[in-house]
Design a protein around this nucleic acid. Structure first.
Lengths: 104, 104
DNA sequence: TCGTTAAATCGTGATTTCCCGATTAAAGCG
DNA sequence: CGCTTTAATCGGGAAATCACGATTTAACGA
């Protein structure tokens, strides 16, 4: 994973500076804990519907939360048919943690 | 350093989700790079005036920035006479980085 | 005691974030 | 082609953040 720029760091911190978004990223660490779906969550990621349900927010809010996490590079999106599946970007999260330990 | 709670994590991320505050925390990693002051910066921390000058913001803004970092546990404040000196809380920063690598 | 200096707090307008419902876009099925 | 499902985007009101100047508090010296 490339070294994070100042802007990327700020975007990542902003994205995680919200309790629900922080929780979502944690949940995605255990994709199998979500209800079953057409595509295997462990491979393709978790469907937005399931994230929305667990977070207890509206569909539009869930979609926007994931867009923020995606723009910050912390998750990736996998579109299969009508579904959007979200997965942690482990390399980016690792780079963020190491950035805090080394640079910040 | 104790394990960070969800709330502490969010507060720390929020505090760092601002380019100037993130930069300040980085600057404090090299206290000697600031202009000389009555008390040795390496021991007691950096005087608010110097932080304000480098950040290029007003006195009140600088004071509030440091208050945010302090409430997030990322810096400590050392009052000596009329001066407030700020220092990185290395244990908290370390705990934050490890939290990202392990829990988030 | 009276200034002076340092810094926290107060009061503010401007901007941004938050979160929703409504709408739109796209996929898939009968 | 309609109908349904999924999710992104739009529009907006409420709340929080941002950054400032003004004021207050506290420490110190003359």
């Amino acid at each position: 994973m490339a070294k994070l720029t100042e802007d990327e760091l700020v975007a990542a911190f902003k994205a995680l500076g919200h309790p629900t978004r922080l929780a979502i990223l944690g949940w995605l660490g255990d994709p199998e804990s979500f209800p079953p779906q057409d595509q295997p969550a462990g491979e393709v990621g978790v469907c937005l519907k399931h994230i929305q349900a667990r977070a207890g927010v509206s569909q539009s809010t869930a979609s926007q939360f994931m867009a923020v996490l995606q723009r910050a590079g912390l998750v990736t999106c996998n579109r299969v048919g009508p579904w959007s599946h979200y997965q942690r970007n482990e390399a980016a999260i690792d780079a963020l943690g190491k950035s805090v330990l080394a640079d910040v």
